[in-house]
Design a protein around this nucleic acid. Structure first.
Length: 534
DNA sequence: GTAATCATGAATCTTAAA
DNA sequence: TTTAAGATTCATGATTAC
């Protein structure tokens, strides 16, 4: 194994992709393909900083020599591998008929890499066709991820196939993703790393990350997309393939604050020299809320909250838990277990002797990194809902912190699905001036909260749109011209149809609300096109 | 009409045990 | 290594209260 190949495998393993054999197979395939895609290499060890010129016109370019794709290639020391030769021979047999059908050799190669050597010809044709109608993506990373899961064997693979069958049945085979990838490659598994620590965390040693960003996606406009980490199988592969195949950064905010929040982030931001918001937020329940220590029973061993969601426990439940807690001092073990289980599900706190309650909205604001009373003025159910749908500010700010040095004169932001402004609060707390924010948010109560915060804290320009669908290419181009382009396109699209706690309509990316995801890459592309013409 | 309340599993991941 | 059990999850719709 060449040194560089080994390094890549180790790097990917460290961030959670554990099938070394699959990776080796992939790298051999890469070698065979010659990997004509010019990959931008943004590894932690090899990424030079982006050059930024400030002035009337901003010009960004990579200076890390990414025109030379050989930096990312495996060494040539494995050419004699018999297995490799055999694979290439088999591959040629697959490629030839496809080339005769009029597809390019490269497209055929890519399809085989995506679908696997055993895929039927019809499946390969479908895959190539899908690729051609899709955007001009660099799918290199997507291949890496898919190939990792292609290596599933035995029962796991059978289970995966069964899952796919279930989904096809459930979605009727008409889902957005299904229509494009009939080979099912979008349903490939993309397991989040364990522990879910992303590419780096404050006060932790930097992980070794081999992160590739296609050349087209390097630099301005920077983009930052967010959604729930534990979506249905295949969702993140689809999201990733729609965003240049960039590998998601999965982070559980429990590593930065006192509440879990497992989210995936796809972005083209540099990952070196990140800095957290200070002061660092408390990471345990009792550090965050010391007043509860007086009533917290020793047998309730929780130290952190689970995910803060859009609804909270009803009074009947908290009342019945109190009754259970009074069954003994302490209550019997089995009762303790039941109580803790409910407390975990609903994030209950001990506010008195044998008395539990749901967190107050201002406590959730605090845990999520928002200013006190950020959502005050809304009905309480709307406060819970809007907060449950928002970013964890410290987490997002940590990722966005790299913008501070790049844009000392402030940023122009296109904010999609703004909500109550988690991204903007993060930028503000980082001390990054927002010259202009074009905000798109359809919910009136969230808009009210965001507008109120903006008026109190900001001096820049706020432009508001209601519906992402109203943002046509022409309108985007007009905004780009008016504001000199965007420095950051940020947003997390609706998770309603992805979230695990949705019992009624967890329909995936083609669900009623979550389908709006597709507006994000569409608008991002419109921004990039308009900016390329500037 | 609006807001509050409450009951409603399953997909997926993690951990423990065989 | 495989299997089983446990744990977690940016929610939704029907009903009730105001």
């Amino acid at each position: 194994m060449g040194f560089q190949t080994e390094m890549v495998v180790m790097s990917i393993k460290e961030i959670g992709y554990s099938d070394e054999n699959a990776l080796l197979e992939l790298l051999l395939t890469y070698k065979a393909l010659g990997d004509e895609d010019a990959l931008g290499n943004c590894s932690t060890s090899g990424c030079a900083p982006l050059r930024v010129e400030h002035g009337d016109d901003l010009d960004f370019e990579s200076s890390n020599g990414d025109d030379d794709a050989s930096d990312t290639q495996p060494s040539s020391g494995d050419c004699g591998d018999e297995n490799f030769i055999r694979k290439m021979s088999e591959k040629d047999k697959k490629i030839n008929p496809l080339v005769h059908m009029g597809f390019s050799e490269n497209d055929a190669n890519m399809a085989i890499t995506r679908c696997g050597m055993d895929a039927d010809l019809s499946v390969l044709v479908d895959s190539i066709s899908a690729s051609l109608v899709a955007r001009d993506f660099d799918l290199s990373n997507h291949q890496v991820m898919n190939r990792c899961s292609d290596s599933f064997r035995g029962t796991k693979k059978i289970r995966l196939m069964e899952d796919r069958k279930k989904k096809r049945k459930r979605y009727g085979g008409t889902a957005h993703g299904n229509q494009i990838f009939l080979d099912g490659s979008h349903y490939e598994h993309m397991p989040p790393p364990n522990p879910m620590v992303g590419f780096s965390l404050p006060n932790y040693s930097q992980l070794s990350v081999d992160r590739k960003i296609p050349k087209k996606a390097i630099g301005r406009p920077f983009f930052y997309y967010e959604n729930v980490a534990q979506a249905l199988t295949g969702v993140w592969a689809t999201i990733s393939s729609s965003l240049y195949g960039i590998q998601p950064e999965f982070v559980d905010s429990k590593h930065l604050c006192a509440a879990a929040r497992k989210r995936g982030y796809i972005h083209n931001l540099p990952i070196e020299n990140r800095a957290p918001l200070l002061p660092l937020p408390p990471k345990t329940i009792l550090e965050a809320f010391p007043r509860y220590k007086k009533w917290w029973p020793s047998w309730d061993t929780r130290t952190q909250f689970n995910c803060l969601r859009t609804s909270v426990a009803c009074q009947q439940l908290t009342g019945s838990i109190g009754a259970l807690a009074r069954t003994g001092n302490p209550p019997p073990r089995n009762i303790q277990k039941d109580i803790i289980k409910q407390c975990k599900v609903y994030n209950l706190v001990w506010i008195g002797k044998n008395k539990v309650a749901a967190l107050e909205p201002e406590e959730i604001e605090y845990l999520l990194g928002f200013p006190k009373d950020h959502t005050r003025g809304l009905a309480i159910t709307n406060r819970y809902k809007s907060l449950g749908n928002s970013f964890q500010v410290d987490t997002v700010a940590y990722h966005l912190s790299v913008l501070r040095g790049m844009f000392p004169n402030g940023v122009t932001v296109l904010s999609l699905f703004t909500g109550i402004g988690g991204g903007e609060v993060a930028l503000h707390r980082l001390g990054i001036h927002m010259r202009t924010v074009v905000s798109v948010e359809i919910d009136k109560t969230s808009k009210r909260i965001f507008r109120g915060w903006w008026d109190q804290t900001q001096t820049g320009t706020l432009i508001e749109f209601d519906d992402v669908k109203s943002l046509t290419d022409a309108k985007v181009a007009s905004l780009v011209t008016r504001f000199g382009g965007f420095d950051l396109v940020i947003g997390g699209s609706p998770c309603n149809n992805l979230a695990g706690c949705n019992r009624y309509s967890r329909d995936g990316l083609e669900g009623k609300e979550s389908v709006l995801f597709y507006e994000y890459p569409k608008i991002l592309e419109a921004v990039e096109d308009a900016m390329s013409r500037m």
